[in-house]
Amino acid sequence: MDNLENNNPTPQAETPASTGGLSSLASGHSRLFKFLALSLIELIVLIGVFALGINIGLHKARFTYAWINQYPKNFGGPQPAQFMPVPPGNVFFNSHGVSGQILSTNGTSSLIIKDSDNNEKTVLIGTGAVIRENFETIQPQSLKAGQEIVVIGEPNQQGQIQARFVRVIDNN
């Protein structure tokens, strides 16, 4: 009644939106809401991490089995089923990179590397691959047996790594 006489508008209740920001929304909600929201966020993060783990494991397993199946083609010898058992999960190979010593090269297009676990890997050097030693870019022909290198690349279905980048490590 007083408000009508004085032409003063009734003060409106402050809505969460009017104060602005997520914090004001959160502060206006019950503990149950906050608990549920936090639980959902944690569940999403867990599921994301789990999916990433499965993805990486799949890449490693796929590459390892391709490496085993293509072994005679890549390195020679009898069929893998005759001499290599199914590897345990903790020895699946890294498929997108390798670090180790060059065992042999064929000049321009491929290398065989002994990695840090003493396994042999075939690395293909394509035309787009960048090879660097110290601060210079070098040619594939400059790579020699005995050099330590780090390779970043992509696995193929033949159990080989298609190199995108090779860094020669200078041990001197």
């Binding site: 990433l52 990486i56 890449h59 490693k60 890294n94 498929s95 997108h96 990179g97 960048v130 660097r132 970043i152 690349g153 992509e154 995108r164 980048f165 860094r167």
Partner: peptide, 21 residues
């Protein structure tokens, strides 16, 4: 620290190689 530009150009393969190892 040595080849940041190349790493950025091949970031997907690089991230996979780090995570796998």
């Amino acid at each position: 620290f040595t080849d940041f530009g190349v790493i950025v150009a091949n970031w997907q393969d690089y991230i996979y190689s780090v995570l796998e190892s």
